[in-house]
Write a protein that binds this DNA or RNA. Structure first.
Lengths: 111, 111
DNA sequence: GCGTATCGCTACAGTAATTGTAGCAAGGAC
DNA sequence: GTCCTTGCTACAATTACTGTAGCGATACGC
């Protein structure tokens, strides 16, 4: 009944080439996706704790994103709540430089 | 060729904490933003060439995203078209591991 | 049994974001 | 002049998202 989101391989918006990077950029470019991964980067969170961490984002869209991320093998649901899979943890490693970039960037973007 | 300076827009969705990483995740999490940065990663592109590269995405939204990215100091408009700024190039450095991740990820997403 | 929590998850209507098509004005080449 | 191309915009249609409420299941103490 939830609208099942296509697995990463199928037709992904903005990815008619089938190149994995396009599918990934599309997945990560959906609202709250990056934020969810970020919030799960060091700890598992229950769906409600995750919602709190995400500024009380709508549960509808969080659930949708979590379903997509689970299908993508980036997030899994355990007894401790949602947490990153091994793949997901690999992905967050690319976030660390992103964090440092954000600091440099903010000093310039504020002006 | 640049014609006008767009109105400033400072409020970033999903960033009530003021932490730069949140503002950045929000900016990058808008549709086509990641893709645009990706397409500009090694070459400058005119607005139309960029549109072609982005699977003929709507010029409305591309223009919106380009304006945001210019205000963020990540993209600039030159005589050669749009291209990444120094900051933007720093950002794409975090994309290289992302590319490699996408390859590994695709092999798993097939399941 | 009760009431009261929590969990993951969904319904639904209202609102905001995005799409698709068309077209503008300005500049350069012929 | 006519053709191109450039960056950019208008506008309605469609889709994505938000906000609030609430479901069924599970687990507590009573």
């Amino acid at each position: 009944m939830p609208k099942q989101v296509p697995p990463a391989r199928r037709n992904v918006r903005g990815s008619r080439t089938g190149r994995p990077i396009m599918a990934l950029l599309d997945l990560l470019g959906r609202r709250w996706t990056l934020r969810i991964i970020w919030e799960l980067r060091e700890t598992a969170l229950t769906s409600r704790a995750l919602r709190t961490a995400c500024d009380e984002a709508s549960p509808t869209i969080l659930q949708t994103r979590l379903t997509e991320l689970r299908e993508a093998g980036i997030v899994e649901l355990t007894d401790d709540g949602y947490r990153l899979t091994g793949l997901g943890r690999e992905l967050t490693e690319t976030f660390t430089p992103l964090h440092r970039f954000a600091e440099r960037w903010s000093k310039r973007a504020v002006d």
